[in-house]
């Protein structure tokens, strides 16, 4: 180790507990809450079929036989069969998502680089 080493402050027990709780709150507020509140998940649409039969649901005899082996009837299988993903692209949402991901990585690389120089300078000494 060369040069003057940075001496970090010691973190007390209370600080460590606070930081641990902060991380748990972050996990539950940002990831868990949207999940249980139903704000996330597959963007799907379901088509209603009046009086569903295997034919009306687009199932050939082999498909119908396999559904029945699994314990389904046309009525109970109808929702599974008619639920489809909606791949309509909202260009603004796509642009926003791309900007967030790109901005995140730019932030990471920029600040990591700054911190990395501090690490290298302390480990190997200031470059002359």
């Amino acid at each position: 180790m060369s040069g003057k080493a940075y001496r970090p402050p010691e973190q007390g027990k209370a600080g460590q507990i606070f930081d641990s709780i902060f991380l748990l709150v972050l996990v539950y507020a940002v990831l868990f809450a949207p999940l249980v509140l139903g704000l996330t998940g597959g963007g799907t649409i379901t088509k209603t079929v009046e009086e569903p039969t295997w034919e009306a649901l687009g199932q050939n005899p082999t498909m119908a036989a396999q559904w029945e082996k699994l314990g389904f009837t046309p009525e109970t299988a109808a929702e599974m069969i008619t639920t489809r993903f909606d791949y309509t692209i909202n260009p603004w949402a796509l642009l926003l998502t791309a900007a967030v991901i790109l901005g995140y990585f730019i932030f990471l690389i920029k600040f990591s680089e700054k911190e990395y120089r501090e690490v290298i300078n302390e480990r190997f000494g200031e470059k002359k």
């Binding site: 930081d19 991380l23 996330t40 963007g43 993903f85 998502t97």
Partner: peptide
């Protein structure tokens, strides 16, 4: 993004907040 766009943004939000926490608090 196709089908799970909201979840993608939630996940990014998690890592952005965590990164800010690290940079401006934890790194010291």
């Amino acid at each position: 993004f196709l089908g799970y766009g909201t979840q993608l943004l939630a996940m990014m939000c998690f890592y952005i907040v965590a990164s800010l926490w690290f940079t401006f608090h934890r790194y010291k």
